[in-house]
Design a protein around this nucleic acid. Structure first.
Lengths: 219, 219
DNA sequence: ATAGCCGTGGAGGTCAAGATCGGCGTGCAG
DNA sequence: CTGCACGCCGATCTTGACCTCCACGGCTAT
């Protein structure tokens, strides 16, 4: 029944808000519910109740449940992409770049509201619109990373994309693990560890051979 | 409408099967539908139709949709765990271990039927039973990896778990990307690249400093 | 001050999908 | 030959969630 306890929004259910503010408030309520319950378990009734309004107002601001979800998804995809791009552009020292990017993922995941779940743990990936957005942000992040890799290692576009996806994957997976497991390792230390791992790994691909072949590979 | 075309199972809908065989056939049909459409979009009608039987038969073999899904999930979680453990135990050469494990993930993902989606891309993670299984197999894989790491680097359990989760994450994320993007990089080459990345990264954590601090860290 | 208007609220419609009941045909024992 | 048991099917029920219709109360212009 009361799976969601009202933490901060306990509107007396009678306040009149300007459109923009109401919309933002609805987005906030929707985010809380979607994050807590996932898309499918979240009912529009829950979101309306959480926001302290009735259902019709929800439908006066958003055409439907999917669009509401997509609005949040777009918002947080954009935020992730911005964070990653900012981190990558914050320096030209590649090791610091790795550290900054890793930290960006941790910050993103740790960000209040747990909005990262909408991007990384969506339960609506079968919806093409959702799939498209999630895939797109992954690709854009990977491309931003792979540009640096390709330039500094001489690897082909395809190969550097593989590595970039890997680095992004490490960051995302470990950050989520670190958060959910409440690891005793503090965030700084975790980031430093992962940075060390990733940097040693990626720095092993200098442009040694002009043919793009990295270094000695077994077979 | 006809999102799923019958590829091999076009039962004339009149065959009589012994219980065990029917059950396995139902599991196969369910896997195809769940993989193709995800849990929520998959209807019991679809699965029954795919198997060439009527709905009541499904319910004579499984109590409900969730149990059917869990049966498949357990099956493929177990398969992944076995693959990873086998790979880790296949050699004592750590570099080969990394390669073997990486390859295990690729093989798992490339395995016919796309069953990896049930584990890595489930849209039912809000269901506690599913969440528990997915988390458990992730943790078990990571622990198997971290045991090796902890032993060979002298890092603490928590720290080696972070790295292990990272290595597992790389494998899983890149394998999925490699498969879905149909990268021109052949599988051997992709595995070699990732192995190189991971091995250089992880091999940089020898027990250098007795204090557990890896190497020079910027700040 | 008062009349009108616009946004809010509760109650209800619709539909999809999970879960289930009475018949049917087949194969075997006596 | 015949009755019985078993597995299967068509048709149906019900629940739950998304999405709208009729009454109410606060703001504005004269």
């Amino acid at each position: 029944m009361s799976a969601i306890e009202q933490t901060e929004a306990a509107r007396p259910r009678g306040t009149r808000l300007p459109r923009r503010a109401r919309r933002n408030q609805l987005l906030g309520a929707a985010q809380e519910v979607f994050v807590a319950q996932g898309y499918h378990s979240a009912a529009m009734d829950d979101i309306a109740e959480r926001a302290g309004v009735s259902k019709p107002v929800l439908y006066q601001h958003f055409p439907g449940k999917l669009e509401l979800y997509l609005a949040l998804l777009d918002q947080h995809c954009e935020a992730l992409l911005q964070s990653v791009r900012t981190a990558l552009g914050s320096t030209t020292d590649n090791k610091l770049r790795v550290a900054a990017t890793m930290d960006a993922y941790f910050a993103y995941v740790e960000d209040e509201g747990g909005a990262f779940r909408l991007v990384f743990e969506s339960d609506l990936t079968n919806e093409p619109a959702v799939r498209e957005r999630v895939d797109r942000v992954s690709m854009q992040c990977a491309e931003a990373i792979s540009d640096v890799i390709a330039e500094d290692t001489g690897l082909s576009k395809d190969e550097s994309m593989l590595l970039a996806v890997g680095l992004g994957g490490v960051s995302q997976v470990v950050a989520r693990y670190w958060l959910s497991s409440e690891s005793p390792v503090p965030r700084d230390k975790a980031v430093a560890l992962l940075t060390s791992l990733a940097w040693r790994g990626i720095a092993g691909f200098p442009l040694h051979g002009a043919d793009g072949q990295p270094a000695a590979e077994g077979h």
